[in-house]
């Protein structure tokens, strides 16, 4: 096992995913196998290679003109929201 249960619990927390007690060993096992599998990349000789973030190397970011193109569609957009009041999205209390 390349990953411990504690590590997987940490990852699940960082990713905000609840994993049941019963499922945890399954994830520890499969994630370990995946990490072992991708480990083979370490053997590749990449000295001096520039990392590639984008498939088309010659493309650059296009700039949008600074113009307001949107109108208020709050009501429509909030139809998908699980909980709203007074135009706000409601969540359990945010503690700062």
């Amino acid at each position: 096992m390349s990953l411990t249960r504690t590590q997987v619990e940490g990852i699940a927390h960082l990713a905000r995913l609840e994993i049941s007690e019963a499922q945890m060993p399954v994830y520890v096992d499969s994630l370990s196998r995946i990490i072992d599998f991708v480990e083979q990349l370490a053997a590749a000789d990449t000295a001096g290679i520039e990392p590639m973030a984008h498939p088309l190397a010659d493309q650059v970011q296009r700039l949008r003109p600074d113009a307001v193109s949107e109108t208020d569609q709050r009501e429509r957009f909030q139809q998908n929201a699980p909980s709203v009041a007074a135009g706000l999205y409601l969540v359990p209390k945010v503690i700062e």
Partner: peptide
Amino acid sequence: TRSKIFSGSATAYGAEPNTQANL
């Protein structure tokens, strides 16, 4: 700016909640 950094929503201060938030 008049519009947001990645969208065409207005940036004006003080609007009704979520009326200047597009997709």
